[in-house]
Write a protein that binds this DNA or RNA. Sequence first.
DNA 1: CGGAAGCATCGAAGCGCTTCGATGTACAGT
DNA 2: ACTGTACATCGAAGCGCTTCGATGCTTCCG
Lengths: 338, 338
Amino acid sequence: MATLAEVAQHAGVSASTVSYVLSGKRTISTATRLRVEQSIRELGYHPNAGARALASSRSNIIALMVPLRTDMYVPVMMEIAVAVATTARTHGYDVLLLTGEEGPDAVRRVTGSGLADAMILMDVELDDERLPLLRGTDQPSVLIGLPADTSGLTCVDLDFEATGALCVEHLAMLGHRDIAVIGEAPAVYERHTGFAERTLDGLRSRARKSGVRVLHRPCGGGYDAMSVTLARILDERPGTSGFVVQNEQAVEPLLALLRQQGLAVPEDVSVVAVCPDQVAVQASVRLTSVAIPAQEMGRHAVERLVAKLDGRGTDDVVLIAPELTVRTSTGPAPTAAS
Amino acid sequence: MATLAEVAQHAGVSASTVSYVLSGKRTISTATRLRVEQSIRELGYHPNAGARALASSRSNIIALMVPLRTDMYVPVMMEIAVAVATTARTHGYDVLLLTGEEGPDAVRRVTGSGLADAMILMDVELDDERLPLLRGTDQPSVLIGLPADTSGLTCVDLDFEATGALCVEHLAMLGHRDIAVIGEAPAVYERHTGFAERTLDGLRSRARKSGVRVLHRPCGGGYDAMSVTLARILDERPGTSGFVVQNEQAVEPLLALLRQQGLAVPEDVSVVAVCPDQVAVQASVRLTSVAIPAQEMGRHAVERLVAKLDGRGTDDVVLIAPELTVRTSTGPAPTAAS
DNA sequence: CGGAAGCATCGAAGCGCTTCGATGTACAGT
DNA sequence: ACTGTACATCGAAGCGCTTCGATGCTTCCG
């Protein structure tokens, strides 16, 4: 591997000159610059990452901590991760993939070793044990998700409260008065992952305003769980005519089971999903849905982080406004007559 | 941040001694070792990654190149990535996440800069443009997937030929004579991703031996595509009683459409899927399937790579033997009478 | 026309670690 | 008692880069 010194010699300049050509931190005459660039190309020179990190105390790496469990929202997580990686590259950063497994230790390790300049945390819990560490370090970080206390932190997330409200609003407008919410698996609520609870809050407070009744039921993925859940719901609230589903894995089972019960969508019941657009479009009924903007979240997170690294950053919460796309799974509530 | 030198001073030894305590490359008396370890703990010392990389020319980082497109097998990709990350950690490595976007350039960049010690490539095409680069460098690498020419490369993959054969075998044994294969989206075949074609080869050659007819149809995800595809298949080969599906997104649509056509599973038609177990279990019919062992592939890849890094490695191809799990979606072929 | 100001470049120090002799000590074998 | 060997530790060099003065030139202005 060619070194800076070799490039310098080849171009007939000193090492520092080459360095300044590379970084642009001092003015270099055009002639010299071109000559150096030529040498770099001829020798196939790539700066050594370790040396660079050591000398500049910047690794140009962003750590991304993904949840270990792959029990929910996997495609969303993946999409975020890919968006983070590609956006980071456009800013000159690479991405280090950490799993949640190590927990707070990973944060310590990465911060302490200077392996990464900054980090992005996904799947943040309301009272996440990694947060004190983040607050206690001067290493910039961005959370994807919202903990209970956001002071001193930068967060990016979909506005799930507004999302919940939007779903209710849409259904209420169509005349639905009894709405059932099919949520994530119970484990998600027990873990106090913020988004699930926030959606529920938005759903409920909006329902109160609109005079709509809401029944919430967590539900694991798959047909068996859904079957039990649906039966209970219809038993408890036979008048239910609107469904809000926040659980990718429950979408298709729900549709199939409704069909099986002789309930037509959207004639008899309406369904609104909170899921990636792809899922909404590929379902057996094209679903009215609020999209989870995975790419946008990833991109935003990186951009916030880079801003912080450049000293332009501020601590604050960015909530992405939800957008509801009407497709063919929602319609007017059936009249009392029918 | 504490440095090696500070730890050394605190423990009353020289810097090199601390280094040897850390690396274990020379014998250190127990007394000294304990004293040093104590100092490390007290000062909260973490070795600086950049300095380490520079001095040792080892970054302890493995690069993982994931496909940019998230149009297929996303959960599998994610699971592999997570398995790679966790396995790598147990061997003292971190994982750098690269997307396919940069293509060969990423390989050059990482190799040239010493950012990573080795790399793992996913979603390898039959004639992948990154391969010449890998062959031309002495940086160890492992492919997940199988290119056309594996010479000089280490590869890990599910044995998709055997997988295809296994599916046909199972259906043939149950008396099915006309089998339809529902494949990945056409784009996957056009890209010459190896696994799809290899499955087909296995399927066909086994079918020949068993005197079974096979009709292969690529198919995009979603209901509309599946609906068209299924109609064509039943039109062309009305006697079709067995289906092999290698496309997660087509599984549920197929089951729903079969139901709609009045075809009961497994009484009238049998379905074998090639998909992760989770999908097979959560489908509306518990599917007989050949699992895609994502975790195992990720783990294997890392272990091969670490072996190479330790000088114990060899170039070869590891094909994981497929396992077919019988669930409730396959049964005896309907007799001619019925 | 002298000094201030800017430009283009160089040299050297130093980032924090690893690693290779070298050195000093203790003990075994002869 | 003396050499040989193994053990425990130290000092110094060096990994490849960034960055801070310093230096020699031009150019400009009063």
